[in-house]
Design a protein around this nucleic acid. Structure first.
Lengths: 229, 229
DNA sequence: GCCCTGCCTGAGAGTTATCTGAAAATGCGA
DNA sequence: TCGCATTTTCAGATAACTCTCAGGCAGGGC
């Protein structure tokens, strides 16, 4: 399979660099990495990535400076910035149009969604249908809304993320560890029981009909799927 | 046949080292072994394995230290760690992403699956088509689901593992000892009768049609195969 | 055909994963 | 600061699963 796109991941923390590059490769991207601003500029010049995932706090210069430098060199590359949760808003106001950002600590699902969104926009493609559907359960990623059998359902942010993760992986078994990795922040240190709790909440809110969609596979994980097939 | 990949197995217990190296060679890997951390680092430097199977508890240093040392030497090698079931979770949180772990006592099937998954990820390959089929019996590893003649069949974890082992070895006779080794944990001390019980369960669930797939070879073992065409 | 031995399978005891209600902790906006 | 919504933990109940036991059945050697 040919890669979806080439990404440059820039972060000075090796763990995060590793986390991102492994997951993004797994998601089908070609990934190169850099650990500081100078290196990032060099590698970007050489490998011409389609998008840069850029930590805002780098040892030598900040992420925005890296993006600025590339633009000055006539090589405008769209970026997804990684920023601390408490980053001042005006900093982010300086984002070039088309760029996006994710606050640390992020969840992998979040980063992937932003990257795909930015790539879609910059490639001028028609947005992929933002509606996911499994049986009579529908989820609108843009509107952040969910319907079951045509009736809207109110979900909390975490419930929404979990359902979203289930829906993009419909028919595939997801272990609690996988779910924790993708839906919760990467530094979540708590109990796996949160996943059980949230699955229970989801069931109560979206899986009340006779036709069950969320199935437990004891000892393995959970799977969202319509019966038959 | 050229080896799938070169593995380094590190464990101080000779029995486990032997168990693993024999089975992994049988599965098509090239295997080298080491019995402690120092030796592991030396051998890894010399033989450049594609992956290390690493006991976390070694006499001289722990498995994470070995991995850390190799990484520091600029030789990041993906690892599958062997850990006690009660290992503190935060220890495992220190896993570099891309690595994986298996708790002791493991089953060989489990270890093989992890090794293959890690190799796939680090090589950026797309997973092999996850469907196995024998006659009208189908098994989907991702969905963790089984169909017979198109109808879904509910299996417990052990039943699923056993059927999976049968299917990847279709047409080959498997002794009860072999089955016990691959599907049950290596230190399972119980009766071989469990295998009989589970074969019985499987027959009841997936082999009810006229066309029998699971055959008993008295005094030898079992074999899963479609009747001769 | 008879007998020995291995295999099959129903029943049951013990164990474990999961579910869920409730409470505690956290975060966020007014 | 308070109050509400949300997230996380906890623990008891429950359902599912694993494994053992033992009687009966059947294959194959004699």
């Amino acid at each position: 399979m040919t890669a979806e796109a080439r990404l440059l991941v820039v972060d000075d923390e090796p763990n995060i660099r590793e986390l991102l590059s492994v997951s993004l490769r797994y998601a089908g991207f070609e990934v190169v990495t850099a650990s500081d601003g100078r290196e990032a500029v060099q590698i970007a010049e050489r490998t011409r990535p389609d998008l840069i995932v850029l930590d805002v706090m780098l040892p030598d210069m900040d992420g925005f400076a890296v993006a600025g430098r590339l633009k000055a060199a006539g090589r405008r590359v769209p970026a997804v910035f990684l920023t601390a949760r408490d980053a001042s808003e005006d900093k982010l106001a300086g984002l070039a149009l088309g760029d996006d950002y994710v606050t640390k600590p992020f969840s992998l699902d979040e980063v992937l969604a932003r990257i795909r969104a930015v790539l879609r926009r910059t490639r001028g493609e028609v947005a992929a249908p933002p509606r996911l559907q499994v049986a009579d359960l529908e989820l609108d990623q843009d509107a952040h809304q969910v319907w079951r059998a045509g009736r809207p359902v109110r979900l909390s942010p975490t419930e929404f993320k979990l359902l979203h993760y289930f829906m993009i992986n419909q028919g595939r078994v997801l272990s609690k560890a996988q779910i924790l990795d993708h839906v919760w922040h990467y530094d979540f240190g708590g109990d796996r029981n949160v996943v059980e709790s949230y699955v229970s909440y989801l069931r109560r809110k979206v899986d009340t009909a006779d036709l069950k969609l969320i199935h437990t596979l004891r000892g393995v994980g959970y799977v969202l799927r319509a019966p038959r097939q």
